[in-house]
């Protein structure tokens, strides 16, 4: 399946390109835009962006695979990223991860069968003072305990 930006996103993309003295610098923002539209960065997305930015598909691939936040495969609708770095560990992040695994019935790196949730553990999210914490899509949820996690997931389930 071919990928192209929606007209609205193409306009945003053109705007991004103008911000830099060199076209290829717009690759990171272009990848964000494509991921927003497509959910993940497929081979078609990479080829399309390579064409727009006048770089090789290999250059795009190199960049995509360096950064953890670009999804290299489709994932569940909501991406749950639990911080499991040093400072969160001090405040119990291991228990947070275990609880989410049990509750969702998945291992880290997997999506639920209904495709609603994808569970990851990540390194420091800059929220050490309100640990344990997780990021779901664009939002941080901090000072977690089991009750709070239940509540957050229930709200996402009923939306």
């Amino acid at each position: 399946m071919n990928f192209t930006f929606t007209p609205e996103n193409k306009k945003k993309f053109d705007e991004y390109v103008k911000r830099y003295p060199q076209k290829r610098a717009a690759l990171l923002p272009a990848l964000w835009l494509a991921q927003e539209q497509n959910g993940w960065i497929s081979g078609e997305v990479m080829e399309y962006l390579a064409g727009l930015l006048e770089v090789t598909p290999a250059f795009v691939y190199e960049t995509v695979t360096f950064y953890t936040m670009y999804n290299k495969k489709p994932i569940g609708k909501h991406h749950i990223q639990v911080c499991n770095s040093v400072c969160c560990w001090l405040r119990g992040s291991e228990q947070t991860v275990d609880y989410l695994k049990r509750k969702l019935g998945v291992n880290v790196g997997e999506s639920t069968a209904d495709g609603r949730f994808h569970l990851s553990t990540v390194e420091c999210l800059g929220s050490c003072g309100s640990a344990p914490m997780m990021q779901i899509d664009n939002d941080y949820f901090e000072n977690l305990d089991e009750e709070k996690i239940d509540q957050i997931l229930n709200e996402l389930n009923t939306e």
Partner: peptide, 21 residues
């Protein structure tokens, strides 16, 4: 916007990332 790489806080890595690589 970066995309999840601690090293990009190192100033020359940041420049590489700013340039799209």
């Amino acid at each position: 916007r970066g995309a999840g790489a601690y090293i990009c806080g190192e100033e020359t890595a940041l420049l590489s990332s700013l340039e799209g690589g």
